[in-house]
Each structure stands twice: as C-alpha cells, then as structure tokens.
Design a protein around this nucleic acid. Structure first.
Lengths: 146, 146
DNA sequence: TTAATTTAAGATAAAATTATCTGATTACTA
DNA sequence: TAGTAATCAGATAATTTTATCTTAAATTAA
C-alpha cells in the first residue's frame, strides 16, 4: 500500500487536533481520546507520551489528569507532529528508491517530485493544529467530538 | 518513517528499469538483477513473478532463461508498476488519516493535498520506463548497470 | 537422456509496525 | 490516610512486511 505517514502519525495528528477542540487548560484522558477517535488505548498512550516528551503536549497524572496541548494550537504545525513521530526522511531520499538518484544524478522524476515534496513540506509547515481543529468543528464532523 | 511506495514497489521499479536498459528480447536472470541492484534474491523473484502475472514482464525457465519486458518500455508507465505492486489506495484516503475527511467534509489540508496527489498521479502516469532508463544511462549511473 | 540452470511455488523465518497486558507511580478526593 | 483514577513504563503478543529456504517444474545443451 502506498502511504505517506505511519498509522502512529495519523493517530497523533487526530489526537492533537481533538485536544485543540477543548477549552484551554482542560485535561483529556487517553480513555476519552481512544474511545472518541477509535484508536487502541495503550497504543495511543505510547504515542501521547512521545508527544509529551517532545514538548508538543503536556500531561498530568491522577484523577482529573490527562493530556492537553503543550503550546498554543496556532504554534503547533502539522510538521511538528510528523517530525516528532515519523522523522523527516520523506524529504531526503529518492521517491522511487533509486540509490544513486540525487541532485547531481537525477532520476527521470527527481525534479518533478522535488516540487511536490517541497509543496507538501510547505503544507505541513504552514498549517497548524488550530486550522485543523477549525475544519473539524463543522457539523459533519460531530462524530469526532462526541 | 514517512514513505510513499513500499520497498517491494521500489525494487520493482528498479528491476523493470534495469530490464529496459537491455537489448530487446534479451533475457536477464534474477541472479544478475539481484546482484547488480543489491536486492534480496528470492524476494525479487516473488516480485518479478507478480509483474509477469500482471503482464508487465515476461519470463522463461531454464538456461538462457530469465525476465524481459512484457511490453515496449515506452508503454510501461510508472503507474502501471505502482498499481501492480502497491495498489492505488494512495489516491483515495485522507493523507492525514482522518476517517471523516472527504470532499464533502474536507479537513484543513484536503484541497491542497488533492492538488499534490493529482500532480503525483500525473507524474506516474506520464513517465514511462523508457524515460527512467534513459536517465539511468548517464555515466554517473554506471553502478546500476555493471 | 542426462546434467545443469533457471523460474515457480510454498513453507518458514526475521524484522518492523501495531496492539495488548500488567504493574508501578502520581495525584486528587473523600 | 485510604481509595480511586489517571499517566508511565516495561514486557509481551499479533500483524504486516520483508527476507530466506527448499523443492518442483521447465528448458537448454552436451
């Protein structure tokens, strides 16, 4: 299957977006996130831990504990999350896997892929979680929030 | 790791390109392909079998046997190979994995991703193996052919 | 016809990713 | 202080992808 981001990364993007829909400062439990977003509980726990470690989220233990954004939603870009979970390998290697392909020795699609790659990169850098959350607020997305 | 095409798919693209560099009608063994392209022998065998089944390659058993293109190199597009190995899932689902995202209920990057996806699709459809092979003929790519 | 060489095919193994289980630690509340 | 609910952390399991092993079947050539 052709894919861009790992499942972990998709889960992370969804969870962080969900958190951005919450009132500032409110903590949300893994339980709620896993249930509403249909993500495996413990797997999600690991991912959130990772995001806390990277500073994108904050967490608190105990009753009333949970997770919340570690930065203002407008300051968390999609790229921050992708980078934290998947790393940035996607903008270095040949898209077709040719080991010899490089700027000096481009394969036949090297240049056009370069443009798309840069465009995608810019998309990730420019779009933040507040924007993602705003799109999710539409009534059609009600399922995500309840 | 962020990735677009599976490793199998990368191997397939490289092997077919290698075959396109050979004189028409000449058979090339898995052994040679695996060695020159540094791809695991038996794994490559499976992939080539698949491509034969899909009609993109032809094969012959016995001494002097091997694999060759099943169509003129100009008629095998990158998309043919990607489709045969990875399927076409990459141009249907939300790039960020949001289950509710669709044309009716777009996530914040739905539209821009749509443009890149279409561009990448066109790139795959328009570029054929003859073009890939031509790029590989440069001296810098000598490693691929010997 | 026999030996050698190659693909075909199925079983198995290894590695990576995804998912689950268990117990420890922390913190709130009654 | 005790109980409860939550994250933290490590081990384990399941699944998928990648890779290997073995044997069979086909084809060529001596």
């Amino acid at each position: 299957m052709s894919i861009i981001f790992s499942r972990q990364c998709e889960y992370a993007l969804q969870a962080v977006t969900y958190l951005a829909l919450k009132p500032a400062g409110e903590m949300t439990s893994i339980k709620e996130l896993a249930k509403k977003l249909d993500i495996p509980y413990h797997f999600l726990g690991k991912i959130l831990q990772d995001l806390v470690y990277k500073g994108l989220l904050m967490s608190q233990k105990g009753p009333t504990g949970g997770f919340a954004l570690g930065l203002p939603a407008t300051e968390i870009t999609l790229f921050h999350i992708v980078e934290a979970i998947d790393g940035v390998g996607f903008n270095t290697n040949c898209v077709l896997g040719f080991p010899e392909c490089s700027g000096k020795n481009p394969c036949a699609v090297h240049d056009s892929w370069g443009e798309y790659r840069e465009g995608i990169y810019q998309m990730l850098v420019k779009r933040n979680i507040a924007e993602m959350a705003k799109a999710m607020k539409k009534p059609e997305y009600a399922a995500m929030r309840r």
